[in-house]
């Protein structure tokens, strides 16, 4: 049931055709009430499902990374600030890959208020991605990300120097 609710949110996000700035609404976490740390569990599960949606979107294309750049917050002060201020929200990007493996046409499909700098940071990052050569261009690959924070604890997060937010794992 809880997975269904999160998938519904994912589905809504994916149907948006052009960039829209919306207000972020947290998914319903009531299903996790029985957990020892319900909010933490909800945040983690939500992040995981969003990430798995990314995995599924890419894996159905058959593309293979040659190089997967990570976001670098140096020179992206607004993005870093959004993370430091724990601004909650989400975005959906869409990108395409040429036969030579380079990325083109990176678009923001949906973004919630306050998360625009992070959407831009990720769009810039995705432009640097390189894939193995592919017989034909692959278009419309979705990349989504959700930013949720919990006060219950954050001891599972890695705060590395290049890590632009507490990661999903």
């Amino acid at each position: 049931m809880k997975a269904l609710m999160i998938f519904a949110a994912l589905l809504l996000a994916s149907t948006a055709g052009a960039q829209t700035v919306t207000t972020f609404k947290r998914p319903d976490c009531s299903a996790y009430k029985a957990s020892a740390k319900p909010e933490r569990k909800c945040v983690r599960e939500t992040r995981r499902l969003w990430q798995e949606a990314n995995f599924a979107a890419l894996q159905k294309t058959g593309l293979m990374f040659v190089y997967m750049a990570r976001p670098d917050t140096k020179g992206a002060a607004d993005a870093l600030k959004a993370v430091q201020n724990e601004v909650e929200g989400s975005f959906v990007l869409r990108f395409s890959v040429k036969p030579d493996g380079t990325v083109y046409d990176v678009r923001t499909v949906e973004v919630t208020e306050g998360i625009q700098p992070l959407a831009k940071l990720w769009a810039d990052t995705i432009r640097q991605w390189t894939f193995a050569k592919t017989p034909q261009a692959v278009t419309g690959i979705e990349f989504r990300r959700i930013y949720m924070y919990t006060k219950e604890d954050d001891d599972d997060a890695y705060h590395g120097p290049q890590s632009e937010q507490p990661e999903e794992h």
Binding site: N54, F55, L58, Q59, L63, M64, F65, M68, F131
Partner: peptide, 9 residues
């Protein structure tokens, strides 16, 4: 192993 593209290279 890249978990994003699912490939093991």
């Amino acid at each position: 192993w890249n978990e994003y593209d699912g490939k093991i290279r």
